[in-house]
Design a protein around this nucleic acid. Structure first.
Lengths: 132, 132
DNA sequence: TTCTGTGCAAATCTTTTGCATGGCA
DNA sequence: TGCCATGCAAAAGATTTGCACAGAA
């Protein structure tokens, strides 16, 4: 895996401290909302503007460097990786990446070739199910 | 299948002309955004307010009479039915209901019992793929 | 110098809330 | 009468836009 600087350079986007900060925040959280990214970066980078986050998330999505995860709530963003499924906790909203099983992937590809798939599984995460 | 009036009566919600109109609009479109529901109903019901649509969609969701379909864009709503997957056209945004295969359902239930699943498949719908 | 990216402020859109009114049990 | 639902208007929140400035190629 290349580093973020290289990923940006091989896209149409320039590498800037703000963009690197956005990517590293998303990476360290796994999945983050705009607001989370903003407040996280603001600590080490007080002058950053919310508009910069919005603009950059839009361009990073265009370049497919980050992807949006749809969770019926605030959209969250992740670094684009191999297609995978998401387990979303319906209590706390935490998102975990899980693997598509081969069976599922094959099944879908057979019926819908050339399609992009997203699978969401909603349940209680291990933390939340402890208190239930 | 019972009619909407009965569905409402067996919930905590009263049956009102506005609610019936919302349900029948969603039903006839299959999947509709707030804006689509609003402008559709406004024709036959000019005095209806957007706030009424928002409030009712929220309560109808609480009662699980309608469900939200996550499509990375404007949320769309459908009448709640058996769990099923969605095919979303990445060009025009149209949503089609498709069946979960038994294989997929079983596979997921084995690994994630008591979970609710959503499967989205993104591709080009038949209309859009004609012009591609 | 030129171009892209940034940050601020304003503008726009979307959604929610408060409140007075209306209608039904 | 007592509720709940509606519609309006205002408020709040989220996102986008315009513009001037800064920094890197």
């Amino acid at each position: 895996m290349q580093n973020y600087q290289d990923m940006l350079k091989s896209s149409t986007l320039k590498s800037t401290p703000q963009r690197l900060a956005i990517l590293s925040t998303i990476n360290s959280k796994g999945h983050a909302t705009i607001e989370e990214i903003y407040s996280d970066i603001k600590e080490s980078f007080p002058s950053i503007s919310l508009a910069t986050i919005y603009k950059n998330i839009a361009s990073l999505k265009d370049e497919q460097i980050v992807s949006e995860v749809c969770n019926h709530d605030k959209p969250k963003f992740e670094i684009t990786k191999e297609p995978h499924a998401h387990f979303i906790c319906k209590k706390c909203g935490e998102i975990e990446d899980i693997d598509f099983s081969k069976a599922i992937t094959k099944e879908i590809d057979k019926r819908y070739p050339n399609s992009y798939k997203e699978l969401y599984i909603y349940g209680l995460c291990s933390k939340c199910s402890k208190y239930n």
